[in-house]
Amino acid sequence: MTSPAANLSAVQVPKWAFAVALLGLIVTYLVLQENGLALGAGSEMLHEFFHDGRHALGVPCH
């Protein structure tokens, strides 16, 4: 058996990992929440396009 704890401490998390995680959160925000705050006029199109997904994932919508 491998030792999970040993595996763990071996993982080096570089600084840019936080940028990557932040990117993931921003993408999630754009798909699920974009109501015009970040993209302005283009957002309504995006909002309508992802409409069903936003409802289905339980995010508040209109």
């Binding site: 993931g24 999630t28 798909v31 699920l32 069903d52 997904g53």
Partner: peptide
Amino acid sequence: VGGMLGVIIVGIAVGLV
């Protein structure tokens, strides 16, 4: 289609986080 695509994009983004 967009709704499904949105869920897939969210899946990838959440997977990264």
